[in-house]
Design a protein around this nucleic acid. Structure first.
Ligand SMILES: [Zn+2]
Length: 309
DNA sequence: CGCTTTTGACCTGCGC
DNA sequence: GCGCAGGTCAAAAGCG
């Protein structure tokens, strides 16, 4: 992890320019010694080189600033990730397996991040029986990117759901929708869908329990976003797909952690997005390539100099 | 007609 | 015990 802090990326670009100057001066002096008559032409050549060097210095300075900015961002992201990593193990104490403090537990997801959508239960809680009450211990949280223009709370996950309630909660102006599996009471699975307070285009879906039947449409795995669709579609045609981050819940967070969970999930999402956008950004990659090539060039110059000596 | 959604009322747990 | 907030119920309405 700490290799991110390695400042070796901040190449000493000034040294590159200085070595140019030194080398040029040496050349000029040699030229004076060997051919005094060509002094004027050499002087012109030197001016040209100096101009180029100045340009390079400016460019190098820009690059240095860019690299510094990237480095600072990297440090900040690393710090966030470290904090998230530290939170996760602490959340696995799992006092929630005891039957107290019901409501608090229900909304609270532990910080562990899972990639798969299914079975987002905590490994430490898997031995608990799945009676209807204890089914609540099997809670997973999924963040789904939804169409910003679509304000319905419909999430595509392949199962059929029956909406049985909607509430406006205190900490979020967006209403929370309550769904039961259409196979209820055979299948006691429930889900809650609410827009994120941080980003209203993100739906926070909390699943409670596991389906005790096959997926009717067979596509409960990650699916691609399919855009707008009628909210009245009784077959749960999707507006959003749970393809981003899943937080398994084994509950038991300190109070007021719902927003933290949400923020943590979003942070991870942002980290992934920033990483991918950085690697796709041609200016970033070219700047990085330039910096690396400069570094290599500096190395070669040093080698040459040491050979000359 | 059967199923789903809507929505106000009701229930329940928690904090004070 | 009371008030608040989240969760659930169930009657009414909508839809195919
Ligand atoms: Zn089900």
């Amino acid at each position: 992890m700490d290799n991110f802090a390695d400042t070796s990326l901040t190449i000493d670009l000034n040294r590159v320019a200085t070595s140019y100057v030194n080398e040029e001066r040496t050349k000029t002096e040699l030229a004076k010694e060997y051919d005094g008559q060509s002094r004027i032409s050499m002087q012109n050549e030197q001016d040209i080189f100096i101009n180029e060097l100045n340009k390079m210095r400016v460019e190098n300075k820009k690059l240095t600033e860019m690299l510094l900015a990237v480095y600072e961002n990297c440090i900040a992201l690393r710090r966030d990730m470290t904090e998230m990593m530290q939170k996760c193990p602490q959340d696995h104490h799992h006092e929630h397996c005891s039957p107290s403090s019901k409501r608090k537990r229900d909304d609270e997801a532990c910080g562990c991040t899972l990639i798969n959508i299914e079975n987002a239960e905590c490994a430490n809680c898997q031995n608990s029986p799945t009676t209807p009450k204890e089914m609540k211990s099997n809670i997973s949280k999924v963040y789904c990117k939804a169409d910003p223009s679509d304000m319905s709370l419909v999430v595509k996950d392949g199962y059929q759901w029956r909406k049985y309630g909607q509430k406006v909660t205190r900490d979020n102006p967006s209403p929370r929708a309550y769904y039961k599996c259409s196979f209820a009471p055979i299948c006691p699975v429930k889900k809650k869908v609410q827009r994120s307070t941080v980003d209203k285009t993100i739906l926070v879906v909390t699943y409670e329990g596991q389906h005790e039947h096959n997926n009717p449409s067979g596509d409960n795995k990650v699916t691609t976003y399919q855009g707008h669709q009628s909210p009245m579609n009784s077959k749960e045609t999707p507006n959003a797909s749970p393809n981003i981050i899943n937080q398994s819940n084994n509950k038991q967070r300190q109070q007021g952690s719902v927003e933290e969970d949400e923020a943590t999930g979003l942070q991870k999402l942002l980290v992934a997005q920033m990483a991918s956008s950085l690697t796709r950004n041609p200016s970033f990659t070219s700047a990085l390539a330039t910096a690396i090539s400069e570094k290599i060039f500096t190395h070669e110059l040093e080698d040459e100099r040491s050979c000359e000596i």
